[in-house]
Amino acid sequence: MITVILPYPPSANRLWRNGKGATYKSAEYVAWLAEAQAAIPMQARGQIRGPHSVLIEVDRPSRALRDIDNRAKPIMDSLKDQKYLKGVIRDDSDTVQITIRWTGAEPVKPARVRVTVTPEKM
Rank of each mutant, 00 (worst) to 15 (best):
T3R: 12
T3L: 06
T3E: 14
V4A: 06
I5D: 10
P9Y: 13
P10C: 08
A12L: 07
A12V: 04
A12S: 15
A12P: 00
N18W: 05
N18H: 12
A22C: 04
A22H: 09
A22M: 04
A27Q: 11
A27I: 03
E28K: 11
Y29M: 13
Y29F: 15
V30N: 13
A31H: 06
W32M: 05
L33A: 15
L33D: 13
L33M: 15
L33K: 12
L33F: 14
A36W: 10
A38W: 05
A39M: 14
A39F: 04
I40N: 02
Q43I: 08
A44E: 11
R45V: 08
R45I: 08
R45S: 12
Q47I: 09
I48V: 12
I48T: 06
I48F: 09
R49T: 11
R49S: 14
G50I: 04
H52F: 06
S53E: 13
S53P: 00
V54W: 02
L55A: 08
L55Q: 10
V58K: 00
D59K: 11
R60Q: 10
R60T: 07
S62E: 06
S62W: 10
R63N: 15
R63L: 15
D67T: 13
I68R: 05
I68C: 01
D69R: 13
N70K: 08
P74C: 04
P74I: 10
D77N: 14
D77I: 07
S78P: 00
S78L: 03
S78H: 00
K83T: 01
Y84F: 14
Y84Q: 03
Y84N: 13
L85A: 13
K86T: 08
K86G: 02
G87E: 04
R90A: 09
D92P: 00
D94V: 01
T95V: 14
T95N: 13
V96G: 00
V96P: 00
Q97M: 01
I98A: 02
I98L: 10
I98Y: 01
T99I: 11
I100A: 06
I100W: 00
R101N: 10
R101T: 04
T103S: 09
T103Y: 03
T103G: 01
T103W: 00
G104H: 07
G104W: 05
G104C: 09
A105P: 01
E106W: 05
V108Y: 02
V108S: 01
V108Q: 07
P110D: 08
P110Q: 06
A111R: 02
A111G: 05
R114G: 06
R114S: 11
R114V: 15
V115Q: 05
V115L: 09
T116F: 06
K121G: 07
M122C: 05
M122V: 14
